[in-house]
């Protein structure tokens, strides 16, 4: 039981941006996907979530091939994504944002337990929140859906490192609750610290797959893998 990518190729415009990538995200674990800008990390995440269709390979979630499923069906099957750029619904209140995915009040309460500071902002329009709070809403909303697998794409984008540090333990907590997390992150050293598995992608290909601690210990190895 895991989220498995087999030889996934994603093409955009003139050619492939991701070539034959295979990886596995296990339940209860954080797999960190790192790489330089333009390596194809976001394209890969979008292919898993169904935003774009892979031109090759398969995506299998808990032994079910989801490669051809629509975004909505993937979401219903237990896949949640936190996209880049704080994708709140700005005209909705915090509570309404959470209600979109929470099926029961218990789901909502569990999501709010991740970020108690949101409780007093429940009836505020989400556009009026700070960047960090907006990202909390997005993460809580994704968790309220009770996902089996959670895709997190560059959550730290536009956030102060101190704010991002507040999110990291929450991501760890989500993984400990049994959710498989695929974490794409620009702050590689922070992401690798909380991960159990790591993948480095360079120019659309996997240049490293294995223990994140090895990359953390050996700065030269990390640099080499980043450069391809």
């Amino acid at each position: 039981m895991s989220l498995v990518l087999n030889d996934v190729t994603v093409s955009r415009g003139v050619g492939p941006v991701i070539s034959n990538v295979s990886l596995e995200v296990k339940p209860g674990q954080i797999t960190t996907l790192v790489g330089p800008n333009g390596a194809g990390k976001t394209s890969l995440i979008e292919a898993i979530a169904g935003v774009i269709t892979p031109s090759g390979g398969t995506i299998v979630m808990d032994d079910v091939d989801i490669t051809k499923l629509s975004k909505r069906k993937r979401s219903r099957a237990g896949l949640s994504i936190v996209e880049q750029g704080r994708m709140i619904f700005p005209s909705l209140t915090v509570k309404e944002n959470l209600q979109l995915t929470a099926r029961t009040k218990a789901d909502m309460d569990e999501a709010l337990a991740l970020f108690p500071e949101l409780e007093k902002r429940l009836n505020n329009q989400s556009i009026l929140l700070s960047g960090g709070e907006q990202q909390m809403v997005v993460l809580a909303r994704a968790f309220a859906a009770k996902p089996k697998y959670l895709l997190l794409d560059e959550m730290s984008l536009g956030l102060a490192p101190v704010v991002f540090m507040r999110l990291l333990p929450v991501i760890e907590g989500i993984a400990k609750s049994g959710v498989g997390v695929l974490l794409v992150e620009q702050f590689a050293h922070l992401a690798l610290k909380i991960a159990q598995d790591s993948v480095v992608v360079t120019s659309g290909r996997v240049s490293y797959q294995g223990d994140p601690k090895a990359l953390l210990k050996d700065a030269e190895l990390l640099r080499q893998k980043y450069m391809g």
């Binding site: 979401s75 005209s91 909705l92 309404e96 209600q99």
Partner: peptide, 17 residues
């Protein structure tokens, strides 16, 4: 609420089901 979510961000709404 769902209609307003679509109005705000259609693709994001689809991604959350």
């Amino acid at each position: 609420v769902r209609l307003r979510a679509i109005s705000d961000r259609q693709s994001a709404a689809e991604l959350i089901g």
